[in-house]
Design a protein around this nucleic acid. Sequence first.
DNA 1: TCAAAAGTGTTGAGTTTACACCCATGC
DNA 2: GCATGGGTGTAAACTCAACACTTTTGA
Lengths: 230, 230
Amino acid sequence: MPIKQNIKIAVDAIVFGYSDNTLYVLLVRQKYGELKKTWVLPGGFVKDEESLTDAVNRELHEEAGIKVNYLEQLYTFGDDIKRDHRGRVVSVAYFGLVNPKELKLIADTDAEDAQWFPVDAIPKLGYDHKDMINLAKERLKSKLTYQPIGFDLLEHEFLFSDLENLYTTILETGIDRRNFRKKILSFDLLEETDRISSSGSGRPARYFKFNKKKYQKLSKEGFYFEIKLV
Amino acid sequence: MPIKQNIKIAVDAIVFGYSDNTLYVLLVRQKYGELKKTWVLPGGFVKDEESLTDAVNRELHEEAGIKVNYLEQLYTFGDDIKRDHRGRVVSVAYFGLVNPKELKLIADTDAEDAQWFPVDAIPKLGYDHKDMINLAKERLKSKLTYQPIGFDLLEHEFLFSDLENLYTTILETGIDRRNFRKKILSFDLLEETDRISSSGSGRPARYFKFNKKKYQKLSKEGFYFEIKLV
DNA sequence: TCAAAAGTGTTGAGTTTACACCCATGC
DNA sequence: GCATGGGTGTAAACTCAACACTTTTGA
């Protein structure tokens, strides 16, 4: 190619996990350079022969040993030409979700260089990663209301109260339990299981699972999932 | 930076214009190289010292002499590592809208190297530009229903029938004139002008304008523009 | 006076919201 | 038997969808 260009291209991932009424973001400690030991989003430079998606998954694997449940492109950060102190770097940010199992995997390993932070207790971050997280939070909030994305943050089988808490914590809003259940059930996308919570206290609850296949089918036929919450 | 990377970064723009019940896309003729004379989207490599947005606007100016009314980032194409035959190129695609004045500007100049094509009469394009256009069409359709973006495709002052036709042509759907007008007016974002169409035939109609300021204000306060059309 | 497009209300259906009590279990 | 969380129905308010005739102009 006859062109000279001195811009590097990177990917970064904002990965959310949810557990015990808390939304978490995955951060890693920068290993080298000026920002050594600063917390940053997992990510790095794209290799010449790999796709952007592969780059994200590779970085997540290398830096955090994690595999996401859901991944989509979020936004490409390239308007601030000084966003990276090392030179011009354009970063394609991805938005990912993991289920609680993956979350615990890291939480349990006491790897010091990859950790989950509650979204409202994020340490000072390098680069423009705070902006990325904010944008991803917005995306998560809005997607929750028009795509059945919440299920990717829960176990395969979950209680209605789990789902309800997930919505209330992430959207920071109240929910009418009856209306919520009615609405969700009206989609006919949940399946009752035989499993009943071996409860802590209170009346035992039934586990449900989300029928993703059915959703994908209906979705192609023009079905829209939608949960309005004030 | 200690890293070696041989990836170039480009921007491409899918710019829509609307006139006489037709939706148009702006294309330019490739000037050099293997694809010389093929129609492609306006775009090109990003310069080291310019932001992505600046790059798009510059290319639009250079290649088509045009200024867009609305511009937003669409998607970054970088998963197919052979999407550009010249080498690895990641392209950040932008989505833009122009009003009819800008559209006519080029249509009138008989510049052979920048032309508007009706979206359902797009010639064979280079690279993956057809995919980009398809994605942009989807974005346009969905945005029309939840953001007052259609006004950016119309003159500053427009007739209700213009707006109605815009929605029907782009969304390829029917509209109940009464319900549509009722809905749009209920937002209280349009202002009547004194101007009356010096009509062709039929009863003269009144011109309206969109109060963008008011929309932006309401928008911050949690107002959502929404037009549901089957 | 006819053709062409603009303008205008009402009703029924469906959806959303608000709201409170009983149920099943563990301790 | 009491504390804890789970599960359930109904009525009023609102929003949406369907529907057709009158008005104003130019030819």
